[in-house]
């Protein structure tokens, strides 16, 4: 019997004090049957990576509104790689210009969602990614 659940870390890095977006996406993912670890405001990339490791999440979803996305996303990806979490999807949302999103994707970041996106898009994206990756990673 294998009851693999999708585990997602929803984190809000940066110094700005708005976590409404993060809370909305956290609730949407929970309602879609996922287990969401929510950590609150002001998360540093180091905290995010350490939490992702301890919680053994499949997905890290970052809400970045501060404009620091070009440094935050790659830093989280690097830290995860360093700690051996090589099969984690790093995705997220915020006000991120298309060309920035492309640059980030080339660095190993997943799809990024703009402010107007329906939460169902993110849910579907994560589900599809999870299915594609398969559950065969369980002991690697």
């Amino acid at each position: 019997m294998n009851d693999k659940k999708i585990r997602v870390l929803v984190a809000k890095p940066g110094l700005d004090g708005h976590d409404r977006g993060a809370k909305v996406i956290a609730a949407a993912l929970r309602d879609a049957g996922m287990e969401v670890i929510y950590t609150g405001l002001h998360q540093t990339p180091e905290k995010i990576a350490a939490t992702a490791l301890q919680e053994d999440v499949d997905v890290v979803a970052l809400s970045v509104l501060s404009g620091a996305h070009m440094t935050l996303f790659p830093r989280v990806v690097d830290l995860l790689q360093e700690s051996g979490m090589t099969d984690v999807l790093v995705t997220g949302g915020g006000i991120i210009p298309a060309e920035d999103a492309e640059t980030l994707q080339a660095k190993g970041v997943g799809r990024l969602f703009g402010p107007g996106t329906a939460t169902t898009d993110a849910v579907e994206y994560i589900r599809a990614w999870f299915t594609d990756r398969g559950v065969g990673r369980s002991t690697e």
Partner: peptide, 11 residues
């Protein structure tokens, strides 16, 4: 109902 969970203790 959904099997999902919001785990917020780490906050």
């Amino acid at each position: 109902f959904t099997g999902g969970a919001l785990l917020g203790d780490r906050v």
